[in-house]
Design a protein around this nucleic acid. Sequence first.
DNA 1: ACAAGCGAACATATCAGATAAGTGTAGAGC
DNA 2: GCTCTACACTTATCTGATATGTTCGCTTGT
Lengths: 264, 264
Amino acid sequence: MASRGRKDRATAAPTATASVAEALAQLVIGEMSPGASLPSESDLAARFEVSRLTVREAIKMLAGRGLLDVGRGRRAIVREPTAVGFSDFLSAMIRNDPKALFDLIEFRMSLEVQSASLAARRASRAGITALEMAVEGMREASAEGKAGLDVAESERRFHASDLGFHEAIALSSGNRLISFLFEAMAAPLEQSFMLSRRGHDMRGLTVDDTIDEHVQIFTAIRDGNTKAAGTAMREHLQRTEHDIRAALNTAPNPPIVWPSGEEP
Amino acid sequence: MASRGRKDRATAAPTATASVAEALAQLVIGEMSPGASLPSESDLAARFEVSRLTVREAIKMLAGRGLLDVGRGRRAIVREPTAVGFSDFLSAMIRNDPKALFDLIEFRMSLEVQSASLAARRASRAGITALEMAVEGMREASAEGKAGLDVAESERRFHASDLGFHEAIALSSGNRLISFLFEAMAAPLEQSFMLSRRGHDMRGLTVDDTIDEHVQIFTAIRDGNTKAAGTAMREHLQRTEHDIRAALNTAPNPPIVWPSGEEP
DNA sequence: ACAAGCGAACATATCAGATAAGTGTAGAGC
DNA sequence: GCTCTACACTTATCTGATATGTTCGCTTGT
């Protein structure tokens, strides 16, 4: 049962397509850089001694995997990898079980708290500016909403700025893995936003509270205060979790003692 | 049976294959469960009003994406998702830049510290047993190594048990996202193990030290001590980071103040 | 000289039809 | 009831052909 499901068909390739795909993947991942273009299908077909169709299907597999960008009339070019599989997993999980949003926020609790701390240590001037602009975007959207111009649109913009804020932090963390994963998480996160917003209102809180929390995070990062940045982010996420819980009418929930806790 | 508008995909589907793939993905992710099987290629071809080849390529894209499991003679069946994209990204990143291992361990620092804390709160009896067996496996492998029977083999077994230990913690976290990501991380992690082992030796440390660290983590989890579990895991990873740094001959490195720090 | 425009060579997208080989199952035989 | 075999179904792969998009060198007008 410890046998892990990876691709243990290194030697045994039941189908020609699979072995060509494997060989191509090896080549793409190991020796080619994003932007480079693959040989033509006919070329590869000759090289691997299979029909063009087989090469085509192998290429399609890599394309689905997000490694290649194919287009009519031009050769396939190597792409910057994306976490398609992770996004698929998240979408499926949340769709099948809304409670999975708690798994998501639990994960964010680990990822984003550290992300914020790292950003406080590494953020560039440009990163700080991006954060500032995101907060400003939230303020503007909030003002529009209060003016009652177009509530739906202003909410949409608010969430977009909110997402942009967190995204900017992930980028400013200087950690490629964190940026990568956050990117893949962005889509499912939007659902989470909608829900937490509803719970937020139900609990009688205002958007100003939300903005305040973001400002606290921003300030800590700008001042290079790693500890405060992590704490602020953690509190923000805990509040969000409560919002979602309220929206889902889940039980009040036992007190969660957070691991890396700094509460004395 | 009315005429179906097939080309009305607003999501920019320049090719038939892409739109069929998109539709299938929607279907697989949204409405089907792992284990279910897709209609036959001919069937789908008729339904989408395209040739069998087009359906075939679309299916291959999903297979590459890890959503389907195809085989000769039987229909494609829906698969439990895997983070192929994430694994690809990790492999490529580490291959292109060994320093990426620090990004990896930084990420592990956030993921596994929380994972350990959560495990301390949620681990089942079976989970505890799995951890215990992993530690025992490390001890046995270490003993074999000291006896000088087969050094390479005993090292391999040691690393396998080590990985199994961390894997068991991820599973015991009860968080599906964490388990999922750890799974995807497993392969690149093995490289990391080799390297840290070398640095470990270079620094004059022994395997017993490593085992001790794992025992500390295990004890904390078994006793349900979330805080201690997180702390022990953090220290273990920090030590590992130093090992890797030693192996890569990188500068001693500035002191890193960890965000969620519990150092007073 | 130089830039715009044209066209041929190249490359992929998709179709049709055909053969080989693996899977699963219904029915024959015991 | 159980086993074993033949058959229908299904995927894997090939060949060959047509349509359409891309790229780039060459011509042409200024």
